[in-house]
């Protein structure tokens, strides 16, 4: 289906961004070590930038990790039910994810907008506009929500057409 394909590519793209974050923090730490030991200087923003990278990594990969079911869950109770009844567990779980995801999306989005209009920057020498790192997290939550809604849609249609 067309919608699934779009969601799939967006989610894969976000996941690749997460990979770039991991490479970026690796290179930044190596650069800092070299600067400190060979040139007696520093990038002055290591813990700040690596902090942004870790957070964006975690959030940007969220959609794909959810989709691959690599976010862990306790299945011990669910496994005792029939395939059809298990769908209700899935639906409940999807709903919980949608509620939490939506709250996070709304309030992180609110914070991003505030930072953007107030022009808040970080207090380090780099003066990073704060809407950028938080904006990356917002994108991550958005992709997560897309994946959750997709899963919700699939589970509902399975329940209706009884093709389980």
């Amino acid at each position: 289906m067309y919608a699934h394909k779009i969601i799939d590519s967006i989610s894969k793209l976000a996941n690749s961004l997460a990979v770039i974050m991991l490479c970026g923090m690796f290179l930044h730490i190596i650069l800092e070590i070299i600067l400190r030991n060979s040139f007696d200087t520093s990038t002055f923003v290591l813990d700040e930038f690596v902090g942004y990278a870790v957070a964006s990594l975690a959030f940007l990969a969220l959609g794909e990790t959810f989709h691959k079911r690599a976010l862990i869950e306790v299945t011990i109770l669910k496994d005792n039910f029939s395939k059809r009844n298990r769908l209700f567990f899935e639906l409940f779980s999807n709903l919980a994810c949608s509620v939490i995801g939506s709250i996070l999306f709304y309030y992180i989005g609110r914070s991003v907008i505030n930072h953007f209009y107030r022009g808040t920057v970080s207090s380090s020498v780099a003066e990073v506009p704060q809407f950028i790192p938080e904006g990356l997290l917002l994108i991550g939550v958005f992709v997560f929500l897309l994946r959750v809604f997709e899963s919700l849609w699939i589970n509902i249609s399975l329940l209706i057409v009884k093709e389980y």
Partner: peptide, 8 residues
């Protein structure tokens, strides 16, 4: 127990 992802 509902099988919801642990962090959620």
């Amino acid at each position: 127990a509902s099988g919801t992802t642990i962090f959620i």
